[in-house]
C-alpha cells in the first residue's frame, strides 16, 4: 500500500507529519500565487504582460517598464504579499488556539486597537496647520503598540484562573467596542481632513507603499512566520482540547500567551503597514483547512499562500476596477469574506 503521509523529522522540535495531497495542493497554490504576483505587477494604468514583467524582474526590459515596476508596483505588491501571509497565519494560530473557526484578529480587538492608536497618533502629533510634527514613518510603530496594548488588556481582563478561549473572545469584543468609541471620539473632535485620512487607513489600504515599508515589514514578517512554523506542533496539541493538552504534559497557559503574542506581532506588523484589512485572518485559514486538513505543519504554509493571494487580488481589484479612484483593499476582502463565511457555515450543516 502506498504511504499517504510523509514524515519530516529534523530535530526533536521540528517534525511534521504531512499529507502527501497537501504538498501537491500547496504547490498548486504557490503557482497560482506566482501568477497573481506577476499579473498584479503588470496591471495598472500602464499594462505590461506577465512575460515582460518576469523579464523586467530578471534585469532586461525597457526603461519605462523598469521604472513602473521597480519604483511603483513592486513595493506595493510585496507589502500586499507579506501582509496577507501575516494576517492569515495570525488567524490560523488564533483559530487553533481558541478552537473556533470564527476567531480572528479582528474579533480579538487587535485591529481596532491599532486603528485607535493610529488616529491618536494623527491627533497628538498634528500642529495648528494640521501638518504632522514628526515623521509619518513612526505611524507603524504606533499601530503595533496599539494592537499589543489592546491584546494585553484583553488577556489580563480575560484572566480568571487561566484563560478560557471563550472568555478571551468575549472580552475581545468588548475592548474592540471601547477602542472603536475612542477612535470615533478622536475623529469627531479633530478636523475633517484627518477623519478622512484615518478612515481610509482603518478600512485597510496598501496605497502608497514604498521600499522603506518593504524594508521594515519583510524581515519582521519573515522571522515571525518562521517562528510560527516551528510552533506548529504546539498548535496541533492545543487544538486537541484542554484535557488532552494537559494530559500530554503541556503548560497550557504559558503556551497560550506565547501563541497570542505571536499572532499579535504578526497582525501588528500587517496592520501597521496596511491598516485594518479585515476577514483575511478569518477566511484564509478556513479555506486552507478545507484544502489541506488541520495539521498545522501543512495548514500554516497553505493559509499563508491563500492570505497572500487574497490581499494581492483585493489590492489589484481596488486600484484597477474603479481607476483612477482607489478603493481600499479592505472593502473587497470584507465583501468577499462575509459571503464566504456564511457559505462555510451553511455547508457545515450537511
Amino acid at each position: 500500500m502506498k504511504k499517504k503521509y510523509l514524515s519530516l523529522r529534523m530535530t526533536n522540535y521540528l517534525s511534521f507529519l504531512i499529507d502527501k495531497k497537501a504538498v501537491i495542493i500547496s504547490l498548486v497554490l504557490l503557482m497560482f500565487g506566482l501568477i497573481v504576483f506577476l499579473v498584479s505587477l503588470g496591471m495598472g494604468s500602464a499594462y505590461i504582460s506577465p512575460l515582460n514583467v518576469a523579464k523586467t524582474l530578471f534585469g532586461s526590459g525597457t526603461d519605462m517598464e523598469k521604472i513602473v515596476i521597480h519604483t511603483f508596483r513592486l513595493p506595493r505588491v510585496i507589502v500586499a504579499l507579506f501582509v496577507g501571509m501575516s494576517l492569515a497565519v495570525a488567524g490560523a494560530i488564533l483559530q487553533g488556539m481558541i478552537r473556533n473557526p470564527l476567531a480572528s484578529p479582528d474579533v480579538l480587538g487587535m485591529t481596532s486597537g491599532a486603528a485607535a492608536a493610529v488616529v491618536a497618533f494623527l491627533a497628538l502629533f498634528s500642529d495648528q496647520n494640521h501638518s504632522l510634527t514628526i515623521s509619518i514613518h513612526w505611524l507603524p510603530l504606533g499601530a503595533f503598540v496599539g494592537a499589543t496594548v489592546s491584546v494585553l488588556l484583553v488577556y489580563m481582563l480575560a484572566w480568571k484562573n487561566g484563560i478560557s478561549p471563550f472568555r478571551l473572545v468575549l472580552i475581545g469584543i468588548g475592548i474592540s467596542a471601547l477602542m472603536q468609541a475612542g477612535t470615533t471620539f478622536l475623529m469627531i473632535t479633530g478636523p475633517i481632513y484627518r477623519a478622512s485620512q484615518a478612515n481610509v487607513w482603518i478600512t485597510g489600504s496598501i496605497y502608497g507603499a514604498s521600499w522603506k515599508d518593504v524594508a521594515f515589514l519583510v524581515p519582521w514578517a519573515l522571522i515571525l512566520l518562521m517562528i510560527s512554523i516551528v510552533s506548529a506542533r504546539k498548535l496541533n496539541i492545543q487544538e486537541l482540547g484542554d484535557e488532552i493538552a494537559l494530559g500530554v504534559g503541556v503548560s497550557l497557559q504559558r503556551q497560550r500567551l506565547f501563541l497570542l503574542l505571536l499572532s499579535t506581532a504578526l497582525t501588528g506588523g500587517a496592520v501597521a503597514f496596511a491598516g485594518g484589512i479585515g476577514f483575511v485572518g478569518l477566511m484564509a485559514p478556513h479555506m486552507a483547512r478545507r484544502l489541506v486538513g488541520s495539521s498545522f505543519g501543512a495548514l500554516l504554509p497553505a493559509a499563508a499562500l491563500l492570505g497572500a493571494i487574497l490581499v494581492m487580488l483585493a489590492d489589484l481589484v481596488g486600484r484597477t476596477m474603479f481607476a483612477p479612484l482607489e478603493v481600499p483593499a479592505g472593502v473587497f476582502t470584507a465583501a468577499l469574506g462575509a459571503p464566504y463565511f456564511i457559505y462555510l457555515l451553511y455547508k457545515s450543516r450537511q
Binding site: 478600512t203 479585515g278 478603493v327 479592505g330
Partner: peptide, 13 residues
Amino acid sequence: ALFSSLTQGMLSA
C-alpha cells in the same frame, strides 16, 4: 464587522 467595514469603505470613497 462586515457591515461596519462596508460602511467605512463607502465613506472613504
